[in-house]
Simulated scan of single mutants.
Amino acid sequence: MLELRPTVVGAAGLVDDPLTASDATRAVEAVLARFLDAELRRTREVDPLFARDVAGRVSAFVRRGGKRLRTAFLWCGWRAAGGSDDPTAVLRTGAAIELLQACALLHDDLMDGSPLRRGAPAMHVDLACLHRTSRMSGSPESFAVAATVLAGDLALAWADDLLMETALGSPHGTRLYREWRAMRGEMAAGQYRDIHAQAVGTSGVDEALTIATLKSALYTVERPLALGASLTVADECVLDALRSAGRCAGLAFQLRDDLLGAFGDPSVTGKPAGDDLRTRKLTYLLAVAVELADTSGDKEDALALAPGPAYRSDDAVERMRAALERTGARAEVESKIKELVATSLWHFETTGADAAMRREFAAMLERASGVAPDHAGEGR
C-alpha cells in the first residue's frame, strides 16, 4: 500500500482524512518520480546514449509539470464514485495519464511547429540544438523530428506499461483498461481531425466542436473522471453522469484554451501568443468568428479570417485578433464557456457526490475554465 501521510491512509488501508485533488496531485508527483527513476535505470542498461539524449529529456519534461488537470479530475471521479480505500491504483493511473499527456504534448508541438512549451524550448527545438552543438552531419530539423517522434513514443510506452501493471493488480482492471483504450484512440482521432481541418482550410462550427470534443473534452476531463470511477464499484448511472459532466467541463477547458491561444499572455501561458492564429488552426473561436462575419456580410473581417498562407505575418495575426473581437466571437465563446460550466456542475451533482466533493469539483471547473460556477451544491 502507498503511504502518503499518516493521517490519510490507516493501517487497514482506509482513508481516515480524505485527500483533496491537490493532495492527490502531489502524491502522483511522487509516484512519477519513482517510476521515472526506475525506467531511467533500465534505459541506461539498454543503451546509455539513448538514455542520455532521449529518455533523460522525456523524464525531465514530465517532471517539469504542468497543470496536472487530468490527474485532479481522475481523483475527483474516484472520490465522487465512492472511492475511499487504498488509493494506490488511482495514483498510479494518474501517473500513467501524465506520461500519456507528455506523449501528446511532444507530438503536438512537433506537428504544430510550436517553439515553446511550459516556458522552455519545445522538445524538437531542444533536439535540433543538440544536433548543432554536437556537430552532427545532416539536417538538424530532420534529426529533431525523428528524435521527437521517438521521445513521444517512449512516453507512450511508459504510460501503457504503468497502466497495464496497475490494471493487472486491480480487481477493476478490465473496466480500467477499457476506458484507457478508448481514450488513446479518441486522442489520436482528434489530433488527425485537427491537422486535416487545417490542411483543407475548414471553417465549420460543427467540425470545430468535433475536434474540441475528441482532442480535448474527452481526453482532458471525461475519460479521467471515468477512469477514476472505473476503479470503484460505481454503477453505469454514476459513470454516465460523470462522463456528461466531464464532456461539458472539457469543452469549457478547450474553449478557454482557444481564447488564451489568441489573446493570452505568453509569460502566463508559457506559449507564444497567436500561434493558433498564425497557422489558422480550426478552433471553435475561429469558426464562430467566420460564421458571424459571413452572416453580417462584413467582408473585411471575413477576409482576415479566410484561409491563406501556411504561416501568417504579425500584421495578419493582429488583423485576425481584431476580427475575433469585432465580430463578437470572443464574447460569444465566453458566454458558451459559462453555459458549459453550469451544465457540467449540474451533471456532477446528479452523481450523489457529497457537498465537499461538489465544492472541490466546482473549484476544479473554475481552474480549468476560468469561470466561477454560480454555486457548488452546498446543502443539496
Rank of each mutant, 00 (worst) to 15 (best):
M1D: 03
E3C: 14
V8P: 01
G10E: 05
G13Y: 02
S22C: 10
T25G: 06
L32D: 00
R44A: 15
V46H: 12
R57G: 00
V58C: 02
K67T: 02
K67N: 07
R70H: 04
R70N: 01
L74T: 01
W78D: 04
W78P: 13
D85L: 15
R92H: 03
A96I: 04
A102I: 02
C103W: 10
D108T: 01
S114E: 14
R117S: 00
R118Q: 08
R118T: 04
R118P: 00
G119D: 14
M123N: 02
M123V: 06
L130N: 12
H131I: 00
R135V: 04
S139L: 11
A151Y: 14
A151G: 05
G152H: 09
L154C: 03
L168V: 15
P171R: 11
H172Q: 02
E179V: 13
R184D: 15
R184K: 04
M187S: 11
Q191A: 09
I195T: 14
Q198F: 10
V200E: 04
D206P: 12
T210E: 14
L218T: 14
T220A: 13
L225G: 01
L225F: 00
S230T: 03
V233E: 15
V233S: 15
A234V: 15
C237Q: 13
A241T: 10
L242F: 07
R243G: 12
G246V: 06
Q254F: 07
L259M: 09
G264E: 06
T279V: 11
R280G: 00
L285N: 11
V288S: 08
L292R: 00
K299W: 14
E300N: 06
E300W: 07
D301C: 01
A304M: 05
P309D: 12
Y311W: 12
A322P: 05
L324K: 02
A329L: 03
V333T: 06
S335A: 12
S335M: 09
I337Y: 08
S344A: 04
T350Q: 11
T351Q: 01
A353C: 12
A356S: 08
R359W: 05
E360V: 06
A363I: 10
R367Y: 12
P373D: 00
D374G: 11
D374W: 07
